[in-house]
Design a protein around this nucleic acid. Sequence first.
DNA 1: GTATGATTTAAACAACCGTTTGAAACGAGC
DNA 2: GCTCGTTTCAAACGGTTGTTTAAATCATAC
Lengths: 232, 232
Amino acid sequence: MSLADTKHHPDTRERILDAAEALFVEHGFEATSMRTITGRAGVNLASVNYHFGSKEALIQEVFRRRLTWLNHERLRALDRAEAEAKGVPLKPHQIVEAFFGVSLRMAADTEHGGHTFMRLLGRTYTEPTAFVRQFLADEYAAVVPRFKVALFRSLPDVPPEEILWRFHFMLGAMSYAIAGTDALQLVAEYELDEKDPGALARRLMPFLLGGLRAPLAEAPVKTGEKGPRRAA
Amino acid sequence: MSLADTKHHPDTRERILDAAEALFVEHGFEATSMRTITGRAGVNLASVNYHFGSKEALIQEVFRRRLTWLNHERLRALDRAEAEAKGVPLKPHQIVEAFFGVSLRMAADTEHGGHTFMRLLGRTYTEPTAFVRQFLADEYAAVVPRFKVALFRSLPDVPPEEILWRFHFMLGAMSYAIAGTDALQLVAEYELDEKDPGALARRLMPFLLGGLRAPLAEAPVKTGEKGPRRAA
DNA sequence: GTATGATTTAAACAACCGTTTGAAACGAGC
DNA sequence: GCTCGTTTCAAACGGTTGTTTAAATCATAC
């Protein structure tokens, strides 16, 4: 048991995880059956339940094995930037780079499944399954507050609530940029250069920063205000 | 038949569509069974196949009945703005307002299901089911080129390819802002003011415009360029 | 009222779902 | 050689899926 947990599993576990990851992003969770997964992985049907216990546990493991590393890496990038800054508040672009740069670099990795996973992750943000949402919340609980504080310090003149919304918008633009490459063909009938995934970062980063630092709306949004204003 | 198509259906059709719409956004297409739909709608199981033919056709009809109107409205807003401009290229904010303003106003309508539908639509952009994607492509074929041309004219100094990407990013930020309100709780543990949906527009619009008009990356993205640059 | 077409209904259909079972195959330690 | 814990395997489990059927009900026109 102790040995088994650390190293013994030769490849069936990994084969299942890889197949599941690819199929989930292609067809979604519900539409992907265990028989399809084990079929593509070339393993027996029962092995999923043997190794993971249930389909739900398999889904969680698909996320866990990459998301833990991803969030760890994000925190490391933030730590590094803050260490260099020696107490001076970071600039917005440094914080955005720490959070989204790691994601984009992972999404640029088409060799080891990083791209596939990031597409899946983006898709999952709008996935309403309760246990997946709970799982994401737990995984992000450690990393989000750190970035919030950094952003608050970096933009002292912007109301914190506004910063959170814009953080949310940035997360959406990125997830969608990665996950919704199919939807991109709605916009451009001819093929855009998806080949070099590093190009996505060079395109997306200025957009995110432009949105984050955009001037506030003329009439500041007052939370308490109730009556709807006529559309101008 | 001719009568039936126009008006005869009293309410079962609509009851099914409303129930399906709400359930799809809650649980997704695959996870929503016909029995759940007919159960909530209070109609017989077979009536879905009778009125729509199949589950797939039902899904398409759920989108069609609102999306056609939405895109028509978007074109009307663009027409109006261009008529007022009398040949002068529109400003970016006018184009963005025409496209996204209509969506956001629909998303603000919680009374007649507009909000529910826009959440569903945002979710669906990352939904990979082939026939849904094809359906969206058809519905958008008429409206997207018009907005592309308007944006090209409005931003003559920005490479068209860059504009398309930023259009894509904007679409992502909006879809996500509407569909991913669950994911918002990843960012903010306390409740943000989702009550007034008009506030979303006042927050999102500056973000979109800031992103759209952001300065281009220092090193212009050369499509042909291959070698990866060391991270600075 | 009776005839006619549209709609609703309960029941059944085959196909597939995730999971479980018990035996077979494997691999390392002695 | 044999043993023992781990992993694989084919087969079956009960339950749910989308769809179909044929009879019952309804609404309208004559």
